[in-house]
Design a protein around this nucleic acid. Sequence first.
DNA 1: CGAAACTTTGAAGCTCATCAACAGAAGTGG
DNA 2: CCACTTCTGTTGATGAGCTTCAAAGTTTCG
Lengths: 244, 244
Amino acid sequence: MNAIENSPLTRKLSVFVALSDMELAVLDRLHQRRRTFVQGIDLVHQGQSDQAAYVLAEGWVCSYKIQRDGSRQIVDFQIPGDFLGLRSVLLHTSDHSIVPIVEIEAAEILVSDLLDAFAHTPRLATAILWAASRDEAMVVEHLVGLGQRDAEARVAHFFLELAARLALVGLGSKAGFECPLTQYHLADSLGLSAVHVNRVLRRLREEGLVTFRDGRVSFENYDGLVTLAEFDPEYLNHTGPLLS
Amino acid sequence: MNAIENSPLTRKLSVFVALSDMELAVLDRLHQRRRTFVQGIDLVHQGQSDQAAYVLAEGWVCSYKIQRDGSRQIVDFQIPGDFLGLRSVLLHTSDHSIVPIVEIEAAEILVSDLLDAFAHTPRLATAILWAASRDEAMVVEHLVGLGQRDAEARVAHFFLELAARLALVGLGSKAGFECPLTQYHLADSLGLSAVHVNRVLRRLREEGLVTFRDGRVSFENYDGLVTLAEFDPEYLNHTGPLLS
DNA sequence: CGAAACTTTGAAGCTCATCAACAGAAGTGG
DNA sequence: CCACTTCTGTTGATGAGCTTCAAAGTTTCG
């Protein structure tokens, strides 16, 4: 058992596909070209083309779109084990920006390596396709939240989804998780003002459901939150794709 | 020049990739198994597995998710030339439902045919990948609208996007388009109440921007609408993907 | 140590949802 | 065929939820 088996990506994929030694080795190779990026400087910029792709090894980033009026909509957050800019590479262009929220570590992925990996280890390709489609399902669920849920349910749902994702890579549980986000991040992601996010957080805290403080989310009443948010994790745990 | 070259899918793909006779023939073959579906009965149902995939030939459908409280969020509308349930097939499960808005005609796609087509005509695979990624970009833009735009801009943006998509398959222009949707469809898609949609439509009409009446959207002031919605069609027209 | 970033709270007001009622169109059954 | 319901569109009244503006407190950091 080598260290790489504990990389977040490997942990995540292993939950859904049992990976052989050879497949683990290929994943290992994808993790070679390790790089560090500082917080706050765009990794990929809206409209830019021919970017590299990465696997996030440590830290958090977010994908967002800026409107002409200056407002920002965060589409998605990425946590360790997630791919960054995979679509941008395949499509030679990106319609959104990606920025590190804290200093991050990421492994650069060469398209050629990726295509090689796909060709030689179809089960790995399957697993990665699964992960990509899960990301898409999360975007859809996010959209549903913006359209249908009120502020309190949105915040609750957001925390629950993050907790489930983080648990998969060993970074969280039903007790809580470390969370480097600011209330502005929540606001821009949930389509609320930062002021209102603050009030909602206070209410959730006073109701004894969840506390977001000092960079940590602590669930005080997990089941109560699930009820409030109508959180159904099915979309995160869908069964495997083609060939599996 | 045969009739198939005028199928909506062919028209759409041709705009972005010049297709050879052979590729046109393969597309032709995909259109063989024509079927009709009545309005209002789910084609794919949330949670259902192992569905077929289709190419929509005529009519409109929508993809939606139902919440436990009964509210409905429409994620996306599909128009002629769009794929239906492609992801459901690849993933063996669907996290959303698909329902025809009017009686539709669709060609059933066999997964084996599709994979064959991909293997033998890579440029076609490229074009289809492009179309799929464009669909994803539309979902993201929809999300941005729900998070950042007010009701008037949402409605305006919605009409403009639809017009652009329909124009690509010859069903609309900057003058307007036939539109079988009800105000409830708009409401469920845009995260508004039907009552408020009605008021917004009235305002847009009174401002001389756009009229939605008797199943038709008529642009009275296209450029004014573009300004109001901050509509930037770039996400619809991104350049081609890998290999192109 | 001062500046910048983030959090917190109050007050005022606007956008939008909800409730209610009605009118017209379209479909349905006796 | 006409009465019936059902679906869709329209408008008014009321108020909840959220935004905006403002200001002050707290933490972080160069």
